[in-house]
Design a binder for these strands. Structure first.
Length: 664
DNA sequence: CGAAGTATCTTTTTT
DNA sequence: AGATACTTCG
């Protein structure tokens, strides 16, 4: 397949896809065809005879990686077998695994997710008898993460956690586990201590491409720079206006660093927007113009003005949800749109539940992405814990998770007994338990002995049968039956039997996902570990993503996507500039505005914004104030609800709405 | 000693 | 509301 780039791309895009050598910085405004440039660029590289294996493309989410790979295949017509399209984290993991021995690991590694980390910190704290009135595991984890990625140092208040940190690190090592930060920092230390390994990667990946560059953290940039240093064929694509991950270390100053570190850089700006109508674009432009810290740019479009924006003020969140649902119905019919042309974007996960319930009730098909991952659901985590304990019986965290799930009468004191024995013998909880059960003299009460014995046998037997079986999921299935997991889930919710059913359904869906994964020819040689890590790293991703469904997601998760019609509920003070984020750091206002900007620019044609008069937050009714960001959108871009009615005698739209609000 | 019952607080965003 | 931590009951 021959590519005619000049016909396919505008002049700036063309430069982006055809300058293949040397450092390149592409500033790509929202909807400016960024993905298009990237994919054609790679397709072009291949056509120019650059080997697939020397190309490395890094993204932030698996979804983005998959999509990119698919589109490249579509352009070139050949499968991209040797191409490395990966997330930073998955790429880091592959490096660590390949050189595990050099880093002091033996054998397979496990990636711990947020929850694992939390319980590991708890465990470490217990171990060194670290007591604090209220152990803020979440905050400690965040600090550890900052330490590991070089964003913070030990000083002042945080010093008291230093010992805990070392304990935590020791535990990680003992479990042959790594956390998310290790996935980047360990490769860097590897490169530093073993320059020959670095050189191997430099030689291998002579062409590097980074998407969403504004979301790279310092340490990720360091990592990148090391590999790119030698050949300097590195192309980074980003948009400072869409930087919305600074809370997890993203630093769009990296764009300036890149300019300094690669002074021969060529810069390209993509400013023509192909996505949105003129109205939507000017709303977005006006909003983002309020940010002081940004690279000046002006997006423009050749499109029509299109529909006016709609601002709606429902009574409460239930009304709002009902409005959205009925509007979707109506528009779907009136404009003959598919369900997947609609996006509902929310600031927080908590906002999703009401809407989800309404869509469910109205029988509108939908998918949620972002937010609580399928794999983070408790019932799925339970199954994963069982799965992991089969692969690694000596992982104490998983052992603790399953020891009394479902209830088998093994409570705190039994666990203390086992823990004690484990400490003395310097062994894992699992082997300590085995010894306790076997020895006559143990102080373990008979009452707990029996169920514990059963559990240990269960693990060992299942572990054996998994080796002899070709289907992991079938083995797990029978394990679930044996522990009567379904009954357990139903019993957990005595008042809502169907909730238990639903949860069991999730567990089953996970088993299906497992079976599918195992069947996939790509994974024929993979181990259980690969699967488990895949699950941790994949994070968000429904086993089956569907077409023809309304998309409900957080704004963060919506980045990179577009929808013909977008609904933006809860455009309220303390929600869209989020109260907590401002409280924490007043400078975060600009980031909140970028977030709002990202949300606006997802829309192609129709954009609904709404705010409620009152909203239930944590079981408490609260009066809402419209978001100050709304004032930044010129009011002539709005129309009142009914499209056919003209807004002739609108005095002050917002003032009217506000007085209506305060009056009630 | 474990299970059931009660009080309390929360998650903003995610690899 | 729902999960977690703490308290009391069998």
């Amino acid at each position: 397949m021959k590519l005619h780039l000049k016909e396919l791309l505008n002049p700036q895009q063309y430069r982006g896809a055809s300058i293949l050598h040397g450092p390149l910085l592409i500033i790509a405004g929202a909807g400016s065809g960024k993905t298009r440039v990237i994919t054609y660029r790679i397709a072009n590289m291949l056509q120019q005879g650059i080997a697939q294996k020397s190309i490395l493309a890094l993204t932030f989410t698996n979804k983005a990686a998959q999509e990119m790979e698919q589109r490249i295949c579509a352009h070139t017509g050949t499968p991209a077998r040797q191409l490395t399209v990966s997330t930073f984290h998955a790429f880091g993991l592959s490096i660590i695994q390949r050189h595990a021995a050099k880093l002091g690991y033996r054998g397979k590694l496990t990636v711990f997710d947020t929850q694992d980390i939390a319980s590991l910190i708890k465990e470490s704290a217990r171990e060194i008898k670290f007591s604090e009135d209220r152990l803020d595991v979440y905050g400690i984890a965040a600090h550890f993460s900052r330490i590991k990625s070089g964003m913070a140092s030990w000083e002042g208040e945080s010093l008291r956690w230093k010992k805990l940190f070392h304990e935590y690190q020791a535990h990680l090592k003992a479990y042959q586990a790594v956390d998310f930060d290790d996935l980047i920092s360990l490769p860097i230390s590897l490169f530093t201590s073993h320059p020959e390994v670095l050189e191997e990667y430099q030689e291998r990946f002579q062409y590097i491409l980074v998407d969403e560059f504004q979301d790279t953290s310092r340490i990720q940039y360091t990592f990148l720079k090391m590999i790119a240093q030698k050949y300097r064929n590195i192309c980074v694509v980003g948009d400072d206006d869409q930087s919305i991950y600074s809370w997890r270390g993203a630093d769009y100053e990296n764009i300036s660093s890149f300019e300094k570190d690669f002074p021969e850089v060529i810069e390209i700006k993509l400013e023509q927007n192909y996505r949105s109508t003129g109205t939507i674009l000017s709303a977005a432009n006006q909003v983002i113009a309020n940010n002081k810290k940004r690279k000046p740019k002006s997006l423009w479009t050749g499109e029509q003005q299109g529909h006016p924006l709609r601002l709606v003020c429902p009574e409460d969140e239930a009304d709002e949800a009902a409005f959205i649902a009925s509007k979707i119905r109506e528009l779907k019919y009136a404009k003959s749109l598919r369900y997947d042309a609609f996006g509902i974007l929310v600031r927080t996960n908590a906002l999703m539940s009401t809407i989800e319930a309404e869509l469910l009730a109205e029988q509108i098909p939908y998918t949620v992405s972002g937010g609580q991952s399928f794999f983070a659901r408790k019932e799925v985590k339970d199954v994963i814990a069982y799965l992991r304990i089969l692969a690694q019986p000596h992982n104490d965290l998983d052992f603790l998770r399953i020891i009394n799930t479902p209830r088998r009468g093994l409570g705190k004191s039994t666990i203390e007994h086992i823990r004690h024995a484990a400490d003395e013998g310097g062994s894992s909880l699992f082997s300590a338990a085995r010894q306790l059960v076997n020895s006559e003299s143990s102080r373990l009460p008979d009452r707990s002995k029996q169920p514990l014995l059963e559990l240990l046998d269960l693990i060992e037997e299942t572990s054996d049968s998994i080796r002899g079986s070709s289907s992991i999921s079938a083995v797990l299935q029978s394990l679930l039956e044996r522990i009567e997991y379904r009954q357990h889930l139903i019993g957990e919710h005595p008042k809502k039997p169907q909730l238990g059913q639903w949860k069991y359904g999730n567990a089953e869906r996970f088993l299906q996902f497992l079976a599918q994964w195992q069947q996939d020819s790509d994974h024929k040689n993979s181990s259980l570990f690969d699967l488990i890590n895949k699950v941790s790293l994949t994070g968000k991703q429904e086993p089956a993503s569907q077409e023809g469904r309304v998309n409900l997601m957080t704004i963060h998760a919506s980045k990179g996507l577009e929808f013909t019609c977008v609904f933006l509920p809860a455009v309220e003070q303390d929600i869209i500039p989020h109260g907590r984020s401002i409280e924490e750091d007043p400078g975060a206002l600009e980031e909140e505005r970028r977030l709002f900007y990202v949300a606006l620019t997802r829309a192609r044609q129709i954009l609904y914004l709404s705010y409620c008069s009152t909203r239930k937050v944590m079981n408490e009714k609260r009066t809402c104030i419209p978001s100050p960001f709304l004032d930044e959108i010129p009011k002539e871009l709005f129309s009142s609800e009914e499209p056919e009615i003209k807004q002739d005698d609108q005095t002050d739209f917002f003032a009217a709405l506000r007085s209506q609000l305060t009056g009630s």
